[in-house]
């Protein structure tokens, strides 16, 4: 168990491409951190730098108070779960789990005990003699987990471990991984591009974009106070509606076409801003709201998504299942406290 300190970590490849532009944060002991972002945002590179699989170009990385920049991955006392599991195909489940222990010169009896215990925790006892090719995707994933927990390392690293599973299994494994991590109390860094995984599993989320950290915060903070338009649109499904707007008098903003919304903002009139509103934060009203032209209604069962336009800009609203919803002109009620405003251009929160 350990804390991890990233001190202005940078990664530049020999071809000049900078994958990480200075990552600067501390992972607390026992914390579950999720690095999230679109592909190519540098999240995997960052994880691999922590693992020691990628050289650190600049900055320092310390695990448990010790700078590990030049320490071999094997000596960092970490365990990693890979996207494709990276199980050794020619070894049985038991051997897969034991390999790291064997290389650390742990006695045979001790290895057997540790593997048996890990197998029990993960429900793999029946499968210890099988080869990876004889296992289902979910079982392989559990073996990969087993290989990580059997060593009882200081740090767990997860590189999109659930992306090869089907939706149902993914939901189960999310809970299982989180439960295991709580029980073992091992500090964990988890990389994913799936914002649902990020929201549901993380103690804190690090949102990355283009090699830069956009925001670090708890899931609630990220959801309720996104630091930028990028975070706002990346986190949440369906994504936040973002509309071009202009600040008007009395804390209102104008969306164009004479539509004004109270936003509780204190901005110089005429300033261009981006107006953000989550689809689930608006309600349909019979009258007195802003006009919303619905073109398509998507039935999701528990709720409905209405896709249309507000002030000639695309807009989506999510309404509970018992709400009547029809295509054509509707009225929207916007509560000022749910409005997010971002600076035009850079996209930072105002």
């Amino acid at each position: 168990m350990a804390s991890v300190i990233l001190n202005n970590l940078k990664k530049t490849y020999p071809n000049g491409f900078q994958a990480v532009h200075g990552a600067d944060f501390t992972i607390r002991d026992g914390e579950f951190i999720v690095l999230v972002g679109p592909s190519g945002c540098g999240k995997s590179t960052l994880l691999r730098m922590i693992a020691g699989l990628e050289d650190i170009s600049e900055g320092t990385l310390s695990i448990d108070g010790q700078v590990v920049n030049t320490i071999d991955p094997a000596d960092r006392d970490i365990a990693m779960v890979f996207q494709n599991y990276a199980l050794y195909p020619h070894m049985s489940v038991a051997k897969n789990m034991a390999y790291g222990l064997k290389n650390r010169k742990i006695s045979k009896a001790e290895i057997e005990k540790l593997v048996a215990r890990a197998a029990q925790v993960l429900n793999l006892t029946e499968m210890l003699d099988r080869k990876p090719s004889q296992l289902s995707g979910g079982q392989r994933q559990r073996v990969a987990m087993g290989r990580a927990i059997v060593r009882n390392p200081k740090l767990f690293l997860f590189d999109e471990p659930l992306s090869n599973l089907d939706a149902k299994l993914r939901g189960q494994m999310r809970i299982e991984i989180r439960r295991l991590q709580r029980e073992l109390g091992v500090t964990s860094v988890y990389v994913t591009h799936d914002q649902v995984e990020a929201m549901t599993m993380a103690d804190r989320i690090v949102v990355l974009n283009g090699g830069r950290i956009e925001q670090i915060g708890t899931p609630a903070e990220i959801y309720h106070r996104p630091a930028s338009t990028f975070v706002a649109s990346f986190m949440g499904a369906p994504p936040m509606n973002l509309l071009a707007a202009t600040a008007a008098e009395n804390g209102a903003v104008s969306l164009g076409q004479d539509i004004q919304v109270a936003a509780g903002a204190d901005l110089a009139a005429g300033r261009k801003v981006t107006f953000g509103l989550r689809p689930e934060d608006v309600a349909l009203v019979a009258e007195g709201g802003i006009p919303f032209d619905v073109q398509i209604v998507e039935e999701l069962g528990a709720n409905r998504l209405l896709h249309g336009q507000v002030a000639a800009q695309p807009f989506t609203v999510s309404v509970p299942k018992d709400n009547p919803a029809t295509t054509g002109r509707n009225q929207l009620l916007v509560r000022p406290e749910t409005v997010h405003l971002f600076a035009d251009g850079v996209g930072a929160r105002i």
């Binding site: 691999r48 693992a51 020691g52 699989l53 071999d72 991955p73 094997a74 970490i78 365990a79 990693m80 890979f82 996207q83 494709n84 599991y85 990276a86 199980l87 050794y88 020619h90 390999y99 790291g100 290389n103 650390r104 290989r147």
Partner: peptide
């Protein structure tokens, strides 16, 4: 797969061990 050598490195296998064991 690339990840195999990475997994092996984290499992503490050096170049010779990786070659022979994996």
């Amino acid at each position: 797969p690339e990840e195999l050598v990475e997994a092996a490195r984290i499992d503490g296998a050096g170049p010779l061990k990786f070659f022979i064991d994996i």
